[in-house]
């Protein structure tokens, strides 16, 4: 009896918060068939927004993957002073408001910022251009790979690595042959989380991109822009594509998690 009522509380909660709202958006988007959604998606600026989002993710995710692995190896396998500080800074992007991140980058790269005047003098545009969006995306999705890889590295220990070393393997060889294969699922999981965050970032990008239509407008910014121009159908259509990407991410997470737990 108690089990039943708890189950209804939990499922009811999920329906009210999550399933209900998403269902309505799906229904509203497709209530007049596929054509309106398709038309909204094939608008020039919308296509550009999606392309930009994909390009940004294609740059940010590999950078964060390499950094995440190097960082996790440093945290687990090396001893150095101020390790605690590194640990704190690596988690900070998770706890920080995206608007604060955007403002910090705005103040560093802006016209009156520390780096702004030098960059302007050398003809390099960072703020209100693609580089700033890339940096903002890297910032907010920074910790995911490292956070997934650290516990796995701790768990596998370094005996196999030591054995490889004793048998004459170099640092690179040990990494490619021993370390990387044993952390591959953790890395994959981290990459999926990084990708989800990169595709969906809004707040930080809203501050540093300047939101120039057809130039620095990403897919999430485009949702907001369509909504503000009273084009609800357009906003819904872009949202559905982003939601489907999210479902894809979810599917990948669900498929990979058991692998990670048994590996």
């Amino acid at each position: 009896m108690a089990k039943r009522s708890l189950r209804s509380v939990a499922l009811g909660y999920l329906v009210v918060i999550l399933v209900g709202p998403l269902g309505i958006v799906f229904w509203r988007t497709f209530q007049h068939g596929l054509a309106p959604a398709w038309n909204a998606l094939s608008a020039h600026d919308t296509i550009h927004a999606f392309e930009l989002t994909l390009i940004i993710s294609a740059i940010a995710v590999p950078i964060n993957t390499v950094f995440g692995i190097v960082c996790a190896l440093a945290i687990v396998r090396r001893e150095f002073p101020a390790k605690g500080l590194l640990n704190a800074f690596i988690d900070l992007p998770l706890a920080l408001s995206p608007v604060v991140v955007g403002l910090a980058l705005f103040l560093l790269y802006g016209r009156q910022g520390w780096l702004g005047p030098w960059l302007t003098a050398h003809g390099i545009r960072v703020l209100f251009a693609v580089p700033a969006i890339v940096i903002a995306t890297i910032f907010v999705s920074l910790p995911f790979v490292a956070r997934e890889v650290v516990p796995t590295l701790r768990e596998i220990g370094d005996e196999q690595e030591q054995a490889a070393r004793t048998l004459g393997a170099g640092g690179w060889q040990t990494f490619w042959r021993i370390t990387l294969p044993s952390i591959r699922w953790a890395v994959t999981y981290g990459v999926i989380l990084t990708t989800a965050r990169s595709l969906g970032e809004y707040g930080a990008v809203a501050v540093v991109s300047g939101r120039i239509q057809g130039v620095t407008e990403t897919a999430t910014l485009r949702v907001q822009q369509r909504y503000e121009s009273f084009d609800l159908a357009g906003a819904y259509a872009i949202s559905i594509v982003l939601a489907l990407l999210a479902v894809g991410v979810l599917l990948a997470m669900t498929l990979i998690r058991p692998q990670e737990e048994t590996a």
Binding site: L14, V25, E201, A219, Y236, A243, A246, L250, T254
Partner: peptide, 20 residues
């Protein structure tokens, strides 16, 4: 599986969804 959806879904989409 859907517990993680709010994490994977862009926040701007979450807002629009709730408004619907």
């Amino acid at each position: 599986a859907i517990i993680d959806l709010p994490f994977a879904l862009p926040t701007i989409v979450a807002g629009l969804t709730l408004l619907a």
